[in-house]
Structures are given as structure tokens and as C-alpha cells.
Design a protein around this nucleic acid. Sequence first.
DNA 1: CTGAAAGCGCTTACAG
DNA 2: CTGAAAGCGCTTACAG
Lengths: 328, 328
Amino acid sequence: MTSLDVSREAGVSQSAVSRAFTPGAHISPDTRRRVLDAAERLGYQPNAIARSLVTQRSGIVALIVGELHNPFYPQALSQMAQALEARGKRALLLTHDGRRDVQETLDAARSYQIEAAVVFPTRLSSTPPSLGDPLTDGVPVLLFNRQLPGHDLLSVSCDNHAGGRLAAQLLYGSGARRLAFVGGDPDTSTHQDRLRGFAGWLAEAGVELLAAPARAFQYDWGMQATLDLHTAGLRPDGIFAANDIVALGVLDALRVLGRRVPDDVSVIGFDGIPEGARAAYRLTTIRQPLDLMIEDALEALFGPPGPATGRLHPGELVWRGTVGGAQP
Amino acid sequence: MTSLDVSREAGVSQSAVSRAFTPGAHISPDTRRRVLDAAERLGYQPNAIARSLVTQRSGIVALIVGELHNPFYPQALSQMAQALEARGKRALLLTHDGRRDVQETLDAARSYQIEAAVVFPTRLSSTPPSLGDPLTDGVPVLLFNRQLPGHDLLSVSCDNHAGGRLAAQLLYGSGARRLAFVGGDPDTSTHQDRLRGFAGWLAEAGVELLAAPARAFQYDWGMQATLDLHTAGLRPDGIFAANDIVALGVLDALRVLGRRVPDDVSVIGFDGIPEGARAAYRLTTIRQPLDLMIEDALEALFGPPGPATGRLHPGELVWRGTVGGAQP
DNA sequence: CTGAAAGCGCTTACAG
DNA sequence: CTGAAAGCGCTTACAG
């Protein structure tokens, strides 16, 4: 079923059929009606592939995702896909398992004439050399929630550094003085920036950072790190977890250890995943403004050229039950 | 950068360039080498859009997802995308918010000449009339983990009915006699089949089903339903939750109520999400064999025509700590 | 406003 | 094995 079939059915030229489906094309309302009716009868739909070929605009945006352990990312992914649809774009989903190069995945995507690519974090740091300019080569590439120093890629992130400072301030404000950071993947900018902010504020306040073990953004790790901390006799009274998933592990470990939250120890996370709101946790956290970040990402990719890199969005404090003292 | 550019660089015809990139094409190793080298130098990649147009095979498969509240689905989605890539297909991600018709989403996808579509469940039941044959119209459509009676769609599911029976048997085996089902979305086949299996087995055993409240596949609902059950004085000693997410809510409610698991009450879930394995839950559950289901889905879509509908995979018992008695 | 025609970048008979 | 040519289903100057 092609536009030619429709043109015959409607008694017009094939060009007219094309115009009827092109918003803003010069075509009389009457002709458009006839074409649309004929198309309806025949169940015709324009072939987006053919259109892409001639217009040189595929309308396709690559979404590259790694492991989806952290519930923050499926949500980001699905909201991004929706936002893309709202702009008339299509999302091509590509997975990246961390073993191969992101560049390879991008190359594969590029054969579909993608207009842009959004990379959702995995352990990006392991492959920076290849993530240089050749990658962008024509298509804008945006890192969501990661930054790669020394590379000229677009990027939209939460202000992790400021979030780290805020976490320190809040924990300090709750009265805690024996403070620990339970990190995530130490090779990621999110981990690094949050830690820098946290440690920086503490240093300025003259408070020692008790410990900062790091390994992975995972529940199990949060639990184990907390257990280890106590085995080592460190017994912090304030813990900043690198993200919410880790924080949940921290909280469950504290439960096992019999330490009361927030009476004995205050805990704060980062991300704002729905799970943290559950009655079993009531996690106080710094929420990433996902809606804004996604809007901004699309703006960076498709809007007028602006600052090429590192758009930062302040996190929002979500005050629940795991940090002691009064809400600031 | 087109095949013509490469042909000039390599000193061959444009056809030769095409053949060099077509596996199994008749081309001398020498010519192929020359072309590939030239392509490498110029950074050429075949245009998949143009290829799709002429071969009439886009290699694109639509993945239609709704809300991703249940962590089971992001995982299914990402594994499906990977499995597709392994077969040389591409995943076009489309969202379906439940307000609009699935048919609309599919129509939009079809303009990209998709070769197949996989629909991940949302509240599908609300739109059955439109999910008829016109939808399949050329492209095979597969419902993942849902069945739509009266429609001739492909479908791959866990054997929910058998799973429900197993849950009843296990709970009964643990000594429980006051049994409740905490349902999910009552309009879905997963909810319905699990309940039928559960209630059926109990009926045969002559055990009364205490209650079967249902609303949504969500943590909060699991919690609320359990609280309600106890407020109503029902105090079950065995609970089958419609899925794991609901089961976690059930467990947290029981914790709040001070009822010990599995001493006072046994709980079993369905799905096998990683979260259920956490120390805070140790949920006994019936795991859906995701890998097998995905393989089977691809087989149904791209393999030789087989039984058109309703492939069922038995769930696997994952014995952890929330059902009393010995492991069967 | 409308139609005939060129052309987007490929694949694939066809002839050699 | 190789090249010239037709054609996939569209959009878009171009002329009317």
C-alpha cells in the first residue's frame, strides 16, 4: 500500500498524497480531504523509512542503556521515550553491557541515521578514550547524569557536588559528628562529585570524614559496607549513601545491627526513587529533578546551540524520616 | 558519505561496495578488502534506512511498554532488547500510557516498517476491542506475559494458573488453613489466572479462601490490603500475593502489625524480582523464567510458524524464608 | 494549488 | 566475479 495506490483511489497525483500528509504543505483543503479519505479506506500510512531517506531526517534518537539495576534509570528511560514521542521523535533502544565499547554501539546506531543519542550511565569511565569527537561526528551525543572530563560531549546532570555539600550540612545539623560516606562505583562522576561535595563541606567545618568505602551502586554493597564499617568498630552516627539503592542497603544493615534510625544514626541518600518512600524506609534523600533534566536534555540536543557541556540541576531535598533533628 | 564515494575511493563500482557489506554476496576477497579499506578510510557505514527501503526489511522491532513500576518489566525490556540485538534486529521503544489506545501506538510504529511488535503489559484489558486482527495486519504482535482471550495474538506467558495452584499447595503444606490472596490489577490475565489456580486448588482441598482483595500490582496496595485484612479481623495465616512487588508490601505490613513471618503467617509471591532476595525480605516466590520466555517470544515472532497463541512456561519455585515448614 | 520528474542511498536481477 | 541500471516509497524544487 503506497502513496501511488492512494493517489489512484483519490484521483489525484502522487505528489498530492504526499502533500496531504505533510503539515504546512500547499494543498487545498478539498484535495487533502479526498486524499485522507482514500487513505483511510485503504488503510494507508506514509512510509517513514522512505520519508527519512529523502528528507535526510530520520526522527530517530538512540537511547543507550546499560544495566538497569537502579530503578532511577528505567524511569528516566521511559520518561525520555515519552518526551521524545511528544516531540515527534522515535526512540531506538540500544543496550550497552559495559564489555564492549560505547563507540561500537553508537556506530551501529548511526547506520539508522539517528539525529541524536542519549547515553544512560553504565561504567562509562572504562571507555573514555574512544568517547571523543569522532563519536559525535555529526550527531549530538548527550550523557545523562554523567560527565566525562576532557570530552566535548553534551551532558545533563544533577548538581552532585552541591548535593554532597547539602548532605554533609544536613547530617551535621542533625548532630552527627562521626560521618561516613558509603560510595557507589568509584569510577563514576556521580560518585566522585557527591563525595567531593560531602568531604569538602566537612573539611571546611573541621569535621573528619570517618570512612568512604566504595564499590558499586547496589543494595547489597550498601548493606555490606555498613556491616564492614561496624565490624571495624567505626560506628558512624551519620551516613551519606551515594544513591538511594545503596542507602536502602545501609538502612537494612543498620536494622540488622540494631542501630536505630535516626536516633542512633542518621542516613541520607540521593536520587529520589519511589522505593525510598516506603514505610519500611522513609528515606530522607536528595531528589534529582528528572522532569527538568529530561526537558533540558532535549533542549540541549534539539534547541538552539547553547553551552556545550555540563548543564547542572540542583537536587531537591526530600525530608522524610532518616535524618534526625528538625527539618531545615 | 555514501557508497558512491567509497566506490570511487576504492576504484570499483557502487554495486561492489554494496556487495562488500552484504554477507554472502558474490564478491572476490580481494575486492572486498579494497572496499572495506576505503570505507575505513572514509569512515563510511552503510545507510540502514536506504537498505531497509529496498530490501523491504527494516530489522526494526517495536517494544511497547507502559508504566515501569514493577521492576520485572525493565529487566524484561532490557533483556529483550539485547536478545533482539543478538539477532541483528533493532528495538524501537514506544511508550503506552494506558490513556490512549495500544492500536494508535502500533500504527505509529508501523510507519517505520516494523517487522514485529512486543507489547509489555499495562492495563491491556481496557482496550481489547481494538486489539483485533487489523492490528496484526502484516506484522506479528506478541503480548508478553498477558493473554487476551478472543484475540488471535501471539503470547508468551508464565503458567500463571499452575503457579497459583503451586502457591496454594505450598501454603497448605506449611500448615496454613486461613488463606488469602492479595491480588493485583483484577482486569489482567496474570491476576485472574493466578487467582483461579490458587482458588481452584483450595476448593479441591476443601479449604475456604478467606479473602481476595484486588486493585493494583503495587507495593502500597499490598501493604494496604494486608492492613485492611487485619482491621477486618481476618488474620490469615497464609498469603499468596499476586506478584513480588505486592508481596513486599504484604511483608512490610505484617512487620508493622507485629505478625511474624513465617511463624505466624506464610507469604509467597510471584515473579522472582531481585528485590525479593534481600535480607529484609527473603521472599519465597515463583520465578518467571525470563530467559526462556524471551527466547520463546523471539522464536514465536521469527521462527517457523507454530501454535499461534498462548505459549506457557512453568514458573520455578524459589524457596527462601517466608513460607513455613520444610522445602518440598 | 497541482502534477511530472528528479533524486535520497541503497540492493539486486541482468548481462557480460 | 563485476558493472550498469532499475527501482524501493517517498519529498520537493520546478513549471504551469
